[in-house]
């Protein structure tokens, strides 16, 4: 019994070491938010919001203070009609600062079937609650 157990333990250790050495597959980019509160129900792909892209161009305070986005993934009830009226994303996505709302696919580019969440990166799985 004992050598057998040793072999199993050895194999587990070996697998753990191999997994550690192989670079772990990244999922998304750190801070990417997948929003699927309504999209798929309405027949669209879910939305991918990349924080990295936006923070190169805008400080957090623009969206999270001026535009009123709550700092919780899924915590904002944003309807397309709001965006078209120039609220939330529509403050910039109006064809002047950034692409206008009729470019549906550019935001609605997420993989179908995914739930609303914020993604971690190559090291962490994202926050325990969002």
């Amino acid at each position: 019994m004992k050598p057998c157990r040793g072999a199993v333990a050895g194999a587990i250790v070996l697998l753990a070491v191999l997994q550690f050495l192989a670079s772990p597959p990244a999922r998304a980019e750190y801070g990417d938010v997948l929003i699927n509160k309504r999209s798929e129900k309405e027949g669209m792909r879910p939305v991918v919001f990349p924080h990295w892209f936006h923070r190169i161009r805008f400080r957090c305070k623009v969206c999270h203070n001026e535009l009123g986005f709550k700092m919780r993934a899924g915590g904002n009830d944003v309807l397309m009609v709001d965006i078209i009226e120039g609220k939330f994303c529509g403050m910039c996505h109006n064809g002047q600062i950034a692409w206008s709302p009729e470019n549906c696919d550019l935001c609605h580019s997420g993989k179908p079937g995914l739930q609303t969440k914020i993604f971690g990166s190559h090291q962490t799985g994202g926050p325990g609650r969002w």
Partner: peptide, 12 residues
């Protein structure tokens, strides 16, 4: 390849 974007999406 990020498993978050739909590889079929024309946006890519």
């Amino acid at each position: 390849k990020d498993k978050v974007h739909d590889p079929m999406s024309p946006a890519l």
